[in-house]
Simulated assay, not measured.
Amino acid sequence: MRRIRTAPRAPLAAAAALLVLAAAPVPAAQAASGRGHEPKAPEEFVALHDVAPTIRQDIRYFTRHNFVGERIDGYRRPMCLVTRDTGRALARAQRSLLRRGYTLKVYDCYRPQRAVDHFVRWAKDLDDQRMKREFYPRVAKNRLFEDGYIAEKSGHSRGSTVDITVAELPARPTRPYHPGEPLVPCYAPQEERFPDNSVDTGTGFDCFDTLAHTDDPRITGKQRANRLLLKRTLEHEGFSNLPEEWWHFTHEPETFSDTYFDFPVSPRSLTPQH
């Protein structure tokens, strides 16, 4: 469920404010560094691999294995960019899990606004349902906005939010996705879903279904224990979970609480560190 659930879980009054913020000038660090050049990330952004190199990365929006079915705009490289505070907190959580025989694995981190715009265009195209069977088999596509799965702003664009899971060590490699292969619902038993080397949490990543709600009472036993392992480990390091998505966590306080960036996911977007 890539409930591209907009930014913070705020009341309607705050939601209106988001549209105003979107039109506000961005910091100079994000401004284009010359006519025709791409925007750059503020110096507070880092590549997660440079801060926590043992965290696995499975950046789904760089691939065609996502609810859209194609690589998403703005993902130039399969890498995780986050604010420095978020990266350090993830590194602490990783050290805790490594001692228990687990590792973190990220599916998505910073997400440029152009990627969110890509999601919105896709959601409005009701004829494109190529990935429905896996990612939203029980949700009508014309309800994706109303049900909160798609929105015009995402907290991911502020740099302190990640989509993340846990894998047991040693984490086995997974086979690549082959476009056009038969799809299986994201809430099917783990052995039937697309293979993922993460622990079983009851649904796959980006599952547009109420079973993906972190505390859904139908998720019990080992699946529930795995969700709680992830949640409690990250909460200990200052993250909060979005209740509708077991994989979605935001480090608080956010470094940029009201700015939505649009620099590409690429090493070239980062400010060189001296």
Rank of each mutant, 00 (worst) to 15 (best):
residue 7 A to T: 14
residue 8 P to E: 15
residue 14 A to K: 15
residue 21 L to I: 02
residue 22 A to T: 12
residue 22 A to R: 15
residue 26 V to A: 05
residue 28 A to V: 05
residue 30 Q to T: 01
residue 31 A to S: 08
residue 32 A to G: 12
residue 34 G to N: 05
residue 36 G to E: 03
residue 37 H to T: 11
residue 37 H to I: 05
residue 39 P to S: 03
residue 40 K to D: 00
residue 41 A to N: 08
residue 42 P to Y: 02
residue 47 A to E: 14
residue 49 H to T: 07
residue 50 D to R: 05
residue 53 P to L: 02
residue 60 R to D: 13
residue 70 E to K: 03
residue 72 I to G: 04
residue 78 P to E: 06
residue 82 V to G: 01
residue 84 R to H: 13
residue 89 A to T: 00
residue 97 L to D: 06
residue 99 R to H: 09
residue 104 L to E: 12
residue 112 P to Y: 02
residue 116 V to I: 09
residue 124 K to M: 12
residue 126 L to N: 04
residue 127 D to V: 13
residue 127 D to I: 09
residue 133 R to M: 13
residue 139 V to P: 05
residue 144 L to F: 09
residue 154 S to K: 04
residue 157 S to H: 01
residue 161 T to G: 04
residue 162 V to D: 07
residue 162 V to W: 03
residue 170 P to T: 00
residue 170 P to G: 06
residue 172 R to A: 15
residue 173 P to L: 12
residue 178 H to R: 14
residue 184 V to H: 09
residue 184 V to P: 05
residue 188 A to Y: 11
residue 191 E to V: 06
residue 195 P to V: 08
residue 196 D to A: 13
residue 200 D to N: 10
residue 200 D to V: 02
residue 213 H to I: 11
residue 215 D to Y: 11
residue 215 D to I: 01
residue 218 R to Q: 15
residue 219 I to A: 02
residue 225 A to S: 14
residue 227 R to G: 01
residue 232 R to Y: 10
residue 236 H to V: 03
residue 238 G to D: 10
residue 240 S to G: 14
residue 240 S to E: 15
residue 240 S to A: 13
residue 251 H to P: 11
residue 251 H to C: 09
residue 256 F to P: 01
residue 258 D to Y: 05
residue 262 D to H: 00
residue 270 L to I: 00
